[in-house]
Design a binder for these strands. Structure first.
Lengths: 323, 323
DNA sequence: CTGTTAGCGCGTTCAT
DNA sequence: ATGAACGCGCTAACAG
């Protein structure tokens, strides 16, 4: 493999000069620059970026910890991150965790070993204290309320977002409300459950454990939800659904089962992806791509703002009936 | 930053010995090993992986060139790649191209600069000759028929897959057949178009340019397809749809417009994702995850097989009517 | 403007 | 079983 020294020799200059033209430094005479360029061309020289990484202690690589990539919620965030990364000339290295703690630690370790300059954690499994510890090795930003701990965060207040949906339903006269969610565990899920329980308490309604439908990730999962819904002795009049996709599945299955959306079952979904407009779903818009963009921004800039909350807003369409 | 030399000093051994325990080499006395481990612990030493990369000339990183990540076709492949990568202790670095040639070249350059050990190209834009040229820098495998050129490939024969769908339709008495596709350009699309044209010619049917619906990527795009379909003076009796998602969208919109699937419009989709079973779509199963797995395998093993074709199969369900 | 030289942190002969 | 010394390819003082 031909290296910078070979080029220098062949061009009759020093390695420094070669390095300078390689990095577009000033203070190189046009004459020598041409000489070097010619040598590079002739010898088919190409820089070894690992040596650069070692020398500079930086890789221009950012790690992204993400549970899945084939879920619209996360792939939207990832899209936002990826686009912004490209703009800033960073590349992404993926740590798909399936919510596995070990995979997350692995990513943290890569930060420590300087394979990546910084780390974006889209879904946290490990303790805050662990993250704080690793922060000495490079910037870390978590997509979850940092709660004014040391860790930087860019996040959506899922408690308030959920509450907004709940309140909308309550204001429309609904009292019998259930919800669909991916998993019951994890910070975001807990926040949503808290909002749910708080609201029920406020309107003095009992909790129906069987009105909480979990394992709802995809459009196909909507089918199961509707099946379970139909077998209920007591049915809710409204459902909060944490993804437009699942809501779409519910709509489709309801149509098959002749359950009239809004009339018999009101739906508020989340994300405001194109499909929700198509289906005229009342939904809560979550600025996912934007959040991805800001996650990357946060990891890059030595911004003093540690906890950045993203806005959300309810978009009224036609899936909620006023009782 | 504490390095291997510091540890060696502190443990009272040579750097070589430290390196040995780091890499689990034999020929280190248990006594010294303990000493080293203790020093590592105390000094909070951690290896700098970039130095390892430089020395070894290898990074355990594989690049993946992919146009989008939020499209089921590609995210399925990516999933397959990612799972297999994890098993083999490789990490992935993503090059999302949006079909942009420059981004693809960028990935190729990373191979040349040894930032990645090998490269998987899920969708090729650049010339075969360019890829062959870069192959000197590391293994490359393309997810497209390599046509016995120098480049390794793992792919689906989209001509035959499309033909299989077409023949099924023809055998069921259909003659007026159209199709939906993401884009008209690109190798895969050209193959499908060729299969389409060949079939029409065989059954002596004219080509209706307006029976070819492009820009169909997502479930929402199904709406536009149906709109265009409805405004047709002459309508096809069947549609081949290159993704289950788009087919799902078509089904939904047809339901709204009271167009009866199968009876008025037969559909064959591709991929066999869960939604196709849910909707009872006749579809052509494409082993996407498996292909991802084999793409990674191909890039790792010095396998002599250069062109590996993946199988596919038609799954009959209820979206095709026999005329 | 240009070159010399000392690292960056680690792996690896090759003696011992 | 162990260590000295060199090399990986490049950058960045520093000197000129």
């Amino acid at each position: 493999m031909t290296n910078i020294r070979d080029v220098a020799k062949s061009a009759g200059v020093s390695v420094t000069t070669v390095s300078r033209v390689l990095n577009n430094h000033p203070y190189v005479s046009e004459e020598k620059r041409k000489l070097v360029l010619k040598a590079i061309e002739e010898m088919k020289y190409h820089i070894n970026i690992n040596a650069v990484h070692l020398t500079k202690g930086v890789t221009k690589l950012i790690g992204v910890v993400i549970p899945f990539i084939n879920h619209p919620y996360f792939s939207s965030i990832l899209d936002g991150i990826a686009n912004e990364a490209r703009k800033n000339d960073y590349k992404l290295i993926l740590f798909q965790t399936d919510y596995d703690l070990d995979k997350e630690i692995e990513a943290l370790e890569m930060l420590r070993m300087k394979q990546i300059d910084s780390l974006i954690i889209c879904s946290r499994e490990c303790k805050w204290s662990i993250i704080e510890e690793y922060e000495t090795y490079g910037p870390i930003v978590v997509c979850e309320d940092g709660e004014n701990l040391g860790v930087k965060s860019v996040y959506i207040d899922h408690y308030q977002a959920f509450k907004t949906g709940l309140d909308h339903l309550v204001n429309r006269g609904h009292k019998r409300i259930g919800y669909c969610i991916g998993r019951r565990t994890g910070k975001n899920s807990e926040q949503r459950e808290a909002a749910y329980l708080d609201t029920l308490e406020k309107i003095d309604e009992p909790v129906h454990e069987d009105w909480i439908f979990d394992q709802a990730y995809t459009i196909v999962d909507g089918e199961k939800v509707v099946h379970r819904f139909m077998h209920l002795v007591e049915r809710p009049t409204a459902l909060l659904v944490t993804s437009d996709q699942v809501a779409a599945g519910i709509l489709m299955q309801c149509s098959k089962e002749h359950i009239r959306i809004a009339d018999e079952l009101s739906i508020i979904s989340f994300d405001n992806h194109p499909i929700s407009e198509y289906l005229q779903l009342t939904t809560i818009d979550l600025p996912l791509e934007q959040m991805g963009k800001e996650l990357l921004g946060a990891v890059l800039k030595p911004d003093p703002v540690r906890n950045r909350q993203m806005p959300f807003r309810l978009i009224e369409r036609k899936s909620v009936k006023t009782l």
